[in-house]
Design a protein around this nucleic acid. Structure first.
Lengths: 212, 212
DNA sequence: TTTGGAAAATTAACACTGTTAAGTATTTTT
DNA sequence: AAAAATACTTAACAGTGTTAATTTTCCAAA
Protein backbone atom coordinates (compact mmCIF):
# COMPACT_ATOMS: atom_id res chain seq x y z
CA UNK A 1 0.00 0.00 0.00
CA UNK A 2 1.32 3.39 -0.97
CA UNK A 3 1.36 6.82 0.55
CA UNK A 4 -2.16 7.92 1.30
CA UNK A 5 -2.08 9.92 4.51
CA UNK A 6 -3.26 13.33 3.42
CA UNK A 7 -5.30 12.04 0.51
CA UNK A 8 -8.67 12.58 2.15
CA UNK A 9 -9.23 15.18 4.84
CA UNK A 10 -12.56 13.82 5.90
CA UNK A 11 -13.66 10.30 5.13
CA UNK A 12 -17.01 11.28 3.68
CA UNK A 13 -15.14 12.94 0.85
CA UNK A 14 -14.53 9.43 -0.44
CA UNK A 15 -17.93 9.41 -2.11
CA UNK A 16 -16.94 12.49 -4.09
CA UNK A 17 -13.49 11.05 -4.65
CA UNK A 18 -15.00 7.92 -6.18
CA UNK A 19 -17.17 10.04 -8.44
CA UNK A 20 -14.19 12.16 -9.50
CA UNK A 21 -12.18 9.06 -10.37
CA UNK A 22 -15.13 7.62 -12.25
CA UNK A 23 -15.66 10.88 -14.12
CA UNK A 24 -12.01 11.13 -15.09
CA UNK A 25 -11.80 7.51 -16.19
CA UNK A 26 -15.09 7.79 -18.00
CA UNK A 27 -14.18 10.96 -19.89
CA UNK A 28 -10.85 9.54 -21.03
CA UNK A 29 -11.80 5.98 -21.86
CA UNK A 30 -15.59 5.88 -22.09
CA UNK A 31 -18.20 4.09 -20.04
CA UNK A 32 -17.25 0.56 -21.09
CA UNK A 33 -13.74 1.01 -19.73
CA UNK A 34 -14.97 2.52 -16.49
CA UNK A 35 -15.09 -0.59 -14.32
CA UNK A 36 -15.48 -0.73 -10.56
CA UNK A 37 -12.04 -2.24 -10.29
CA UNK A 38 -10.42 0.54 -12.30
CA UNK A 39 -12.14 3.23 -10.26
CA UNK A 40 -10.93 1.48 -7.12
CA UNK A 41 -7.37 1.31 -8.44
CA UNK A 42 -7.50 5.01 -9.30
CA UNK A 43 -8.28 6.03 -5.71
CA UNK A 44 -6.11 3.25 -4.27
CA UNK A 45 -8.87 1.42 -2.48
CA UNK A 46 -10.26 -2.06 -2.69
CA UNK A 47 -13.05 -2.57 -5.27
CA UNK A 48 -15.53 -3.55 -2.59
CA UNK A 49 -15.07 -0.24 -0.77
CA UNK A 50 -16.98 1.42 -3.57
CA UNK A 51 -20.07 -0.57 -2.62
CA UNK A 52 -20.01 1.11 0.78
CA UNK A 53 -20.70 4.43 -0.92
CA UNK A 54 -22.69 3.44 -3.99
CA UNK A 55 -25.33 0.74 -4.16
CA UNK A 56 -24.16 -0.50 -7.54
CA UNK A 57 -22.67 0.65 -10.82
CA UNK A 58 -26.00 2.07 -11.97
CA UNK A 59 -25.88 4.53 -9.08
CA UNK A 60 -22.47 5.77 -10.20
CA UNK A 61 -23.79 5.98 -13.75
CA UNK A 62 -26.67 8.05 -12.46
CA UNK A 63 -24.31 10.41 -10.63
CA UNK A 64 -22.35 10.92 -13.86
CA UNK A 65 -25.65 11.33 -15.66
CA UNK A 66 -26.40 14.32 -13.42
CA UNK A 67 -22.94 15.76 -13.99
CA UNK A 68 -23.68 15.63 -17.69
CA UNK A 69 -26.87 17.62 -17.25
CA UNK A 70 -24.92 20.24 -15.32
CA UNK A 71 -22.46 20.65 -18.19
CA UNK A 72 -25.32 20.86 -20.64
CA UNK A 73 -27.14 23.46 -18.54
CA UNK A 74 -23.98 25.58 -18.60
CA UNK A 75 -23.90 25.41 -22.36
CA UNK A 76 -27.55 26.40 -22.57
CA UNK A 77 -27.03 29.41 -20.29
CA UNK A 78 -25.71 31.66 -23.05
CA UNK A 79 -28.93 31.18 -25.01
CA UNK A 80 -30.85 33.57 -22.78
CA UNK A 81 -29.05 36.49 -24.40
CA UNK A 82 -30.62 35.73 -27.76
CA UNK A 83 -33.80 37.76 -27.98
CA UNK A 84 -35.47 36.42 -31.11
CA UNK A 85 -37.26 33.23 -30.03
CA UNK A 86 -36.71 31.33 -33.24
CA UNK A 87 -33.03 32.22 -33.33
CA UNK A 88 -32.82 31.09 -29.72
CA UNK A 89 -34.45 27.76 -30.54
CA UNK A 90 -32.11 27.35 -33.49
CA UNK A 91 -29.09 28.09 -31.32
CA UNK A 92 -30.37 25.63 -28.74
CA UNK A 93 -30.42 22.95 -31.40
CA UNK A 94 -26.90 23.81 -32.41
CA UNK A 95 -25.67 23.66 -28.82
CA UNK A 96 -27.44 20.33 -28.29
CA UNK A 97 -25.83 18.89 -31.40
CA UNK A 98 -22.40 20.15 -30.44
CA UNK A 99 -22.78 18.81 -26.92
CA UNK A 100 -23.58 15.37 -28.30
CA UNK A 101 -20.41 15.48 -30.38
CA UNK A 102 -18.08 16.99 -27.77
CA UNK A 103 -19.38 14.97 -24.84
CA UNK A 104 -20.38 11.82 -26.69
CA UNK A 105 -20.07 9.55 -23.66
CA UNK A 106 -22.03 11.90 -21.44
CA UNK A 107 -24.71 12.08 -24.10
CA UNK A 108 -24.85 8.31 -24.14
CA UNK A 109 -25.25 8.26 -20.38
CA UNK A 110 -27.92 10.98 -20.36
CA UNK A 111 -30.10 10.04 -23.31
CA UNK A 112 -29.27 6.55 -24.52
CA UNK A 113 -28.34 4.18 -21.72
CA UNK A 114 -31.02 2.52 -19.67
CA UNK A 115 -28.93 1.89 -16.57
CA UNK A 116 -28.78 5.37 -15.04
CA UNK A 117 -32.44 6.09 -15.61
CA UNK A 118 -33.68 2.69 -14.53
CA UNK A 119 -31.97 3.40 -11.26
CA UNK A 120 -34.38 6.28 -10.69
CA UNK A 121 -37.49 4.61 -12.05
CA UNK A 122 -38.01 2.83 -8.76
CA UNK A 123 -38.16 5.87 -6.56
CA UNK A 124 -40.81 8.35 -7.54
CA UNK A 125 -38.70 11.17 -6.21
CA UNK A 126 -38.72 13.90 -8.84
CA UNK A 127 -35.59 15.40 -7.33
CA UNK A 128 -33.47 12.88 -9.19
CA UNK A 129 -34.67 13.94 -12.60
CA UNK A 130 -34.66 17.67 -11.84
CA UNK A 131 -31.89 18.59 -14.27
CA UNK A 132 -33.53 16.67 -17.08
CA UNK A 133 -36.89 18.28 -16.44
CA UNK A 134 -35.28 21.73 -16.44
CA UNK A 135 -33.71 21.10 -19.83
CA UNK A 136 -37.03 19.98 -21.24
CA UNK A 137 -38.77 23.02 -19.80
CA UNK A 138 -36.24 25.30 -21.41
CA UNK A 139 -37.04 23.75 -24.76
CA UNK A 140 -40.74 23.99 -24.11
CA UNK A 141 -40.65 27.64 -23.08
CA UNK A 142 -38.66 28.41 -26.22
CA UNK A 143 -41.29 26.61 -28.28
CA UNK A 144 -44.04 28.63 -26.60
CA UNK A 145 -42.11 31.85 -27.26
CA UNK A 146 -41.87 30.83 -30.90
CA UNK A 147 -45.60 30.18 -31.00
CA UNK A 148 -46.23 33.68 -29.63
CA UNK A 149 -44.08 34.94 -32.48
CA UNK A 150 -46.26 33.13 -34.99
CA UNK A 151 -44.52 29.77 -35.44
CA UNK A 152 -46.05 26.29 -35.00
CA UNK A 153 -49.54 27.70 -34.60
CA UNK A 154 -52.19 25.52 -33.06
CA UNK A 155 -49.87 22.80 -31.79
CA UNK A 156 -49.75 21.54 -28.25
CA UNK A 157 -46.43 22.88 -26.90
CA UNK A 158 -45.55 19.70 -25.03
CA UNK A 159 -46.19 17.42 -27.99
CA UNK A 160 -44.38 19.77 -30.33
CA UNK A 161 -41.42 19.97 -27.96
CA UNK A 162 -41.24 16.22 -28.01
CA UNK A 163 -41.24 16.19 -31.80
CA UNK A 164 -38.35 18.66 -31.89
CA UNK A 165 -36.46 16.82 -29.19
CA UNK A 166 -37.01 13.51 -30.99
CA UNK A 167 -35.60 14.90 -34.21
CA UNK A 168 -32.49 16.29 -32.54
CA UNK A 169 -32.01 13.19 -30.44
CA UNK A 170 -32.47 10.94 -33.45
CA UNK A 171 -29.95 12.91 -35.43
CA UNK A 172 -27.43 12.82 -32.59
CA UNK A 173 -27.70 9.11 -31.95
CA UNK A 174 -27.62 8.16 -35.61
CA UNK A 175 -24.43 10.13 -35.89
CA UNK A 176 -22.80 8.95 -32.65
CA UNK A 177 -23.55 5.29 -33.30
CA UNK A 178 -22.17 5.41 -36.81
CA UNK A 179 -25.45 4.75 -38.57
CA UNK A 180 -25.15 7.76 -40.83
CA UNK A 181 -21.83 6.64 -42.26
CA UNK A 182 -23.31 4.01 -44.53
CA UNK A 183 -26.20 6.12 -45.71
CA UNK A 184 -23.82 8.96 -46.48
CA UNK A 185 -21.18 6.84 -48.16
CA UNK A 186 -23.77 5.19 -50.35
CA UNK A 187 -24.95 8.54 -51.68
CA UNK A 188 -22.15 10.75 -52.94
CA UNK A 189 -23.99 13.91 -51.94
CA UNK A 190 -22.28 14.98 -48.75
CA UNK A 191 -18.66 15.66 -47.92
CA UNK A 192 -18.43 13.35 -44.93
CA UNK A 193 -20.70 12.69 -41.96
CA UNK A 194 -20.11 16.02 -40.24
CA UNK A 195 -21.27 17.81 -43.37
CA UNK A 196 -24.36 15.63 -43.71
CA UNK A 197 -25.21 16.27 -40.09
CA UNK A 198 -25.02 20.04 -40.51
CA UNK A 199 -27.01 19.93 -43.73
CA UNK A 200 -29.73 17.82 -42.16
CA UNK A 201 -29.93 20.19 -39.23
CA UNK A 202 -30.19 23.19 -41.60
CA UNK A 203 -32.98 21.41 -43.46
CA UNK A 204 -34.84 20.80 -40.23
CA UNK A 205 -34.49 24.46 -39.22
CA UNK A 206 -35.67 25.54 -42.65
CA UNK A 207 -38.64 23.24 -42.33
CA UNK A 208 -39.55 24.65 -38.93
CA UNK A 209 -39.16 28.20 -40.21
CA UNK A 210 -41.43 27.57 -43.17
CA UNK A 211 -44.49 27.21 -40.95
CA UNK A 212 -44.67 30.81 -39.85
CA UNK B 1 -22.35 -36.17 -24.69
CA UNK B 2 -25.93 -36.55 -25.76
CA UNK B 3 -27.70 -37.83 -28.78
CA UNK B 4 -26.65 -35.90 -31.82
CA UNK B 5 -26.41 -38.30 -34.73
CA UNK B 6 -28.99 -36.98 -37.11
CA UNK B 7 -28.87 -33.42 -35.78
CA UNK B 8 -27.12 -31.97 -38.79
CA UNK B 9 -27.35 -33.50 -42.24
CA UNK B 10 -24.47 -31.55 -43.64
CA UNK B 11 -21.85 -29.91 -41.47
CA UNK B 12 -22.04 -26.54 -43.17
CA UNK B 13 -25.55 -26.21 -41.81
CA UNK B 14 -23.91 -25.54 -38.47
CA UNK B 15 -23.40 -21.90 -39.39
CA UNK B 16 -27.15 -21.55 -39.89
CA UNK B 17 -27.79 -23.64 -36.81
CA UNK B 18 -25.69 -21.26 -34.73
CA UNK B 19 -27.59 -18.30 -36.11
CA UNK B 20 -30.94 -19.98 -35.39
CA UNK B 21 -29.93 -20.66 -31.82
CA UNK B 22 -28.67 -17.11 -31.43
CA UNK B 23 -31.87 -15.73 -32.92
CA UNK B 24 -34.06 -17.80 -30.65
CA UNK B 25 -32.06 -16.96 -27.54
CA UNK B 26 -31.91 -13.32 -28.54
CA UNK B 27 -35.65 -12.99 -29.19
CA UNK B 28 -36.55 -14.60 -25.88
CA UNK B 29 -33.97 -13.06 -23.56
CA UNK B 30 -32.47 -10.09 -25.40
CA UNK B 31 -29.01 -9.39 -26.66
CA UNK B 32 -27.32 -9.11 -23.27
CA UNK B 33 -28.32 -12.65 -22.37
CA UNK B 34 -27.22 -14.04 -25.73
CA UNK B 35 -23.72 -15.15 -24.86
CA UNK B 36 -21.43 -17.33 -26.92
CA UNK B 37 -21.55 -19.96 -24.22
CA UNK B 38 -25.35 -20.02 -24.17
CA UNK B 39 -25.55 -20.30 -27.93
CA UNK B 40 -23.07 -23.17 -27.75
CA UNK B 41 -25.09 -24.92 -25.07
CA UNK B 42 -28.24 -24.52 -27.15
CA UNK B 43 -26.77 -26.39 -30.11
CA UNK B 44 -24.82 -28.76 -27.85
CA UNK B 45 -21.38 -27.76 -29.02
CA UNK B 46 -18.34 -26.33 -27.32
CA UNK B 47 -18.22 -22.50 -27.13
CA UNK B 48 -15.07 -22.35 -29.20
CA UNK B 49 -16.72 -24.17 -32.09
CA UNK B 50 -18.68 -21.01 -32.79
CA UNK B 51 -15.44 -19.20 -33.62
CA UNK B 52 -14.88 -21.66 -36.46
CA UNK B 53 -17.97 -20.27 -38.16
CA UNK B 54 -18.08 -16.68 -36.97
CA UNK B 55 -15.10 -14.37 -36.48
CA UNK B 56 -16.48 -12.89 -33.28
CA UNK B 57 -19.68 -11.90 -31.54
CA UNK B 58 -20.03 -8.79 -33.68
CA UNK B 59 -20.33 -10.99 -36.76
CA UNK B 60 -23.23 -12.86 -35.17
CA UNK B 61 -24.76 -9.54 -34.19
CA UNK B 62 -24.45 -8.43 -37.77
CA UNK B 63 -26.15 -11.57 -39.02
CA UNK B 64 -29.06 -10.92 -36.66
CA UNK B 65 -29.03 -7.30 -37.75
CA UNK B 66 -29.72 -8.46 -41.31
CA UNK B 67 -32.48 -10.78 -40.12
CA UNK B 68 -34.08 -7.76 -38.51
CA UNK B 69 -34.05 -5.83 -41.76
CA UNK B 70 -35.72 -8.76 -43.47
CA UNK B 71 -38.56 -8.73 -40.95
CA UNK B 72 -38.89 -4.98 -41.33
CA UNK B 73 -38.95 -5.22 -45.13
CA UNK B 74 -41.81 -7.70 -44.83
CA UNK B 75 -43.75 -5.24 -42.72
CA UNK B 76 -43.13 -2.47 -45.22
CA UNK B 77 -44.34 -4.61 -48.13
CA UNK B 78 -48.02 -3.92 -47.48
CA UNK B 79 -47.44 -0.18 -47.85
CA UNK B 80 -47.23 -0.42 -51.64
CA UNK B 81 -50.99 -0.92 -51.76
CA UNK B 82 -51.61 2.56 -50.37
CA UNK B 83 -51.94 4.90 -53.29
CA UNK B 84 -51.96 8.33 -51.69
CA UNK B 85 -48.28 9.19 -51.08
CA UNK B 86 -48.82 11.07 -47.83
CA UNK B 87 -51.00 8.32 -46.43
CA UNK B 88 -48.31 5.86 -47.45
CA UNK B 89 -45.62 7.87 -45.66
CA UNK B 90 -47.84 8.13 -42.60
CA UNK B 91 -48.46 4.38 -42.62
CA UNK B 92 -44.73 3.81 -43.01
CA UNK B 93 -44.13 5.81 -39.85
CA UNK B 94 -46.74 3.81 -38.03
CA UNK B 95 -45.19 0.52 -39.14
CA UNK B 96 -41.74 1.74 -38.14
CA UNK B 97 -42.97 2.72 -34.70
CA UNK B 98 -44.79 -0.57 -34.22
CA UNK B 99 -41.75 -2.52 -35.36
CA UNK B 100 -39.61 -0.75 -32.77
CA UNK B 101 -42.09 -1.72 -30.07
CA UNK B 102 -42.76 -5.30 -31.18
CA UNK B 103 -39.15 -6.14 -32.06
CA UNK B 104 -37.40 -3.91 -29.54
CA UNK B 105 -34.24 -6.00 -29.44
CA UNK B 106 -34.00 -6.20 -33.21
CA UNK B 107 -34.47 -2.44 -33.38
CA UNK B 108 -31.63 -2.02 -30.92
CA UNK B 109 -29.43 -4.23 -33.05
CA UNK B 110 -30.35 -2.47 -36.29
CA UNK B 111 -30.36 1.19 -35.30
CA UNK B 112 -28.75 1.64 -31.91
CA UNK B 113 -25.88 -0.74 -31.28
CA UNK B 114 -22.46 0.02 -32.65
CA UNK B 115 -21.18 -3.53 -32.73
CA UNK B 116 -23.00 -4.93 -35.76
CA UNK B 117 -22.35 -1.88 -37.89
CA UNK B 118 -18.74 -1.46 -36.86
CA UNK B 119 -18.21 -4.96 -38.11
CA UNK B 120 -19.05 -3.75 -41.61
CA UNK B 121 -17.29 -0.41 -41.43
CA UNK B 122 -13.98 -2.07 -42.19
CA UNK B 123 -14.98 -3.67 -45.47
CA UNK B 124 -16.27 -1.24 -48.03
CA UNK B 125 -18.54 -3.89 -49.46
CA UNK B 126 -21.93 -2.31 -49.95
CA UNK B 127 -23.52 -5.76 -50.08
CA UNK B 128 -23.53 -5.93 -46.29
CA UNK B 129 -25.66 -2.83 -45.89
CA UNK B 130 -28.02 -3.66 -48.75
CA UNK B 131 -31.12 -4.16 -46.63
CA UNK B 132 -30.54 -0.93 -44.77
CA UNK B 133 -30.05 1.02 -47.98
CA UNK B 134 -33.25 -0.45 -49.41
CA UNK B 135 -35.23 0.69 -46.40
CA UNK B 136 -33.82 4.18 -46.70
CA UNK B 137 -34.61 4.27 -50.40
CA UNK B 138 -38.18 3.28 -49.74
CA UNK B 139 -38.51 6.24 -47.38
CA UNK B 140 -36.84 8.54 -49.88
CA UNK B 141 -39.05 7.50 -52.78
CA UNK B 142 -42.10 8.06 -50.60
CA UNK B 143 -40.81 11.51 -49.73
CA UNK B 144 -40.30 12.27 -53.42
CA UNK B 145 -43.80 11.03 -54.20
CA UNK B 146 -45.11 13.37 -51.49
CA UNK B 147 -43.17 16.24 -53.00
CA UNK B 148 -44.77 15.52 -56.36
CA UNK B 149 -48.10 15.73 -54.59
CA UNK B 150 -47.21 19.16 -53.24
CA UNK B 151 -45.68 18.44 -49.85
CA UNK B 152 -42.24 19.55 -48.57
CA UNK B 153 -41.67 21.77 -51.57
CA UNK B 154 -38.14 22.86 -52.37
CA UNK B 155 -36.41 20.50 -49.97
CA UNK B 156 -33.61 18.16 -50.90
CA UNK B 157 -35.23 14.70 -50.74
CA UNK B 158 -32.20 13.04 -49.11
CA UNK B 159 -31.84 15.66 -46.40
CA UNK B 160 -35.57 15.70 -45.78
CA UNK B 161 -35.63 11.92 -45.56
CA UNK B 162 -32.95 12.10 -42.93
CA UNK B 163 -34.96 14.63 -40.95
CA UNK B 164 -38.00 12.36 -41.02
CA UNK B 165 -35.96 9.29 -40.18
CA UNK B 166 -34.25 11.15 -37.32
CA UNK B 167 -37.58 12.14 -35.83
CA UNK B 168 -38.96 8.63 -35.96
CA UNK B 169 -35.73 7.10 -34.73
CA UNK B 170 -35.49 9.63 -31.93
CA UNK B 171 -39.04 8.92 -30.84
CA UNK B 172 -38.47 5.16 -30.93
CA UNK B 173 -35.25 5.23 -28.92
CA UNK B 174 -36.55 7.69 -26.34
CA UNK B 175 -39.45 5.33 -25.80
CA UNK B 176 -37.50 2.07 -25.82
CA UNK B 177 -34.81 3.34 -23.45
CA UNK B 178 -37.35 4.65 -20.96
CA UNK B 179 -36.48 8.31 -21.35
CA UNK B 180 -40.04 9.36 -22.04
CA UNK B 181 -41.32 7.95 -18.77
CA UNK B 182 -40.01 10.76 -16.64
CA UNK B 183 -41.03 13.53 -18.99
CA UNK B 184 -44.51 12.05 -19.18
CA UNK B 185 -44.90 11.39 -15.48
CA UNK B 186 -43.81 14.89 -14.63
CA UNK B 187 -46.52 16.40 -16.79
CA UNK B 188 -49.97 15.01 -16.14
CA UNK B 189 -51.02 15.44 -19.75
CA UNK B 190 -50.80 11.95 -21.19
CA UNK B 191 -52.33 8.68 -20.13
CA UNK B 192 -49.11 6.68 -20.01
CA UNK B 193 -46.12 6.43 -22.33
CA UNK B 194 -47.89 4.60 -25.12
CA UNK B 195 -50.43 7.39 -25.31
CA UNK B 196 -47.74 10.09 -25.35
CA UNK B 197 -45.94 8.24 -28.11
CA UNK B 198 -49.04 8.10 -30.30
CA UNK B 199 -49.89 11.71 -29.62
CA UNK B 200 -46.36 12.86 -30.50
CA UNK B 201 -46.47 10.86 -33.71
CA UNK B 202 -49.85 12.35 -34.55
CA UNK B 203 -48.44 15.83 -33.93
CA UNK B 204 -45.49 15.13 -36.21
CA UNK B 205 -47.80 13.91 -38.97
CA UNK B 206 -49.98 16.99 -38.54
CA UNK B 207 -46.90 19.16 -38.76
CA UNK B 208 -45.76 17.46 -41.96
CA UNK B 209 -49.22 17.75 -43.44
CA UNK B 210 -49.43 21.45 -42.70
CA UNK B 211 -46.76 22.26 -45.26
CA UNK B 212 -48.75 21.39 -48.33
C1' DT C 1 -7.49 -52.45 -44.85
C1' DT C 2 -4.37 -49.80 -42.79
C1' DT C 3 -2.15 -45.44 -42.52
C1' DG C 4 -1.46 -40.42 -43.00
C1' DG C 5 -3.03 -36.00 -43.11
C1' DA C 6 -6.48 -32.57 -43.11
C1' DA C 7 -10.48 -30.82 -40.98
C1' DA C 8 -13.49 -30.31 -36.99
C1' DA C 9 -14.28 -29.94 -32.27
C1' DT C 10 -12.66 -29.77 -27.58
C1' DT C 11 -10.15 -28.63 -23.14
C1' DA C 12 -7.88 -25.31 -20.58
C1' DA C 13 -6.67 -20.99 -19.90
C1' DC C 14 -6.37 -15.67 -19.98
C1' DA C 15 -7.98 -11.44 -18.65
C1' DC C 16 -11.67 -9.36 -17.68
C1' DT C 17 -16.65 -7.99 -15.56
C1' DG C 18 -20.20 -6.79 -11.36
C1' DT C 19 -21.21 -8.26 -6.92
C1' DT C 20 -21.45 -10.55 -2.19
C1' DA C 21 -20.16 -13.01 2.26
C1' DA C 22 -16.97 -13.29 5.59
C1' DG C 23 -13.08 -11.68 7.96
C1' DT C 24 -9.69 -8.13 9.54
C1' DA C 25 -8.22 -3.73 10.99
C1' DT C 26 -9.24 0.67 12.94
C1' DT C 27 -11.59 3.88 15.53
C1' DT C 28 -14.90 5.33 18.92
C1' DT C 29 -17.56 4.71 22.99
C1' DT C 30 -18.43 2.78 27.38
C1' DA D 1 -8.88 -1.73 29.16
C1' DA D 2 -12.98 -3.94 27.05
C1' DA D 3 -16.77 -3.70 24.03
C1' DA D 4 -19.11 -2.03 20.15
C1' DA D 5 -19.38 0.18 15.90
C1' DT D 6 -17.25 1.62 11.67
C1' DA D 7 -14.21 1.16 7.69
C1' DC D 8 -11.93 -1.59 4.72
C1' DT D 9 -10.01 -5.89 2.53
C1' DT D 10 -9.55 -10.74 0.99
C1' DA D 11 -11.52 -14.40 -1.34
C1' DA D 12 -14.82 -16.05 -3.96
C1' DC D 13 -18.97 -16.65 -7.23
C1' DA D 14 -20.79 -16.65 -11.60
C1' DG D 15 -20.38 -14.85 -15.45
C1' DT D 16 -18.22 -12.61 -20.12
C1' DG D 17 -15.43 -12.79 -25.00
C1' DT D 18 -11.56 -14.87 -26.90
C1' DT D 19 -7.18 -17.64 -27.97
C1' DA D 20 -3.58 -21.47 -28.05
C1' DA D 21 -2.84 -26.03 -27.79
C1' DT D 22 -4.70 -30.50 -28.03
C1' DT D 23 -7.62 -34.20 -29.18
C1' DT D 24 -11.03 -36.43 -31.93
C1' DT D 25 -13.16 -37.40 -36.28
C1' DC D 26 -13.26 -38.31 -40.98
C1' DC D 27 -11.83 -39.29 -45.64
C1' DA D 28 -8.69 -40.45 -49.22
C1' DA D 29 -4.38 -42.58 -50.83
C1' DA D 30 -1.08 -46.51 -50.35
Amino acid sequence: MGIRERKLKHKEDLKQSILDAAKQLFQREGYEATSIRKIAAEIEFSPTTIYLYYKDKAEIAHALHREGFKIMADQFRVLSYIEDPFERLKAMGRVYLQFAIDYADYYELMFVMKEPIQHISGCFDMEEWKEGAEAFHLLQSNIIACQEAGYFKGFDPTAFSMVVWSTMHGLCTLKLHGHLDHVIREKGLFEGVEDALQHTFETFVQFLKGTK
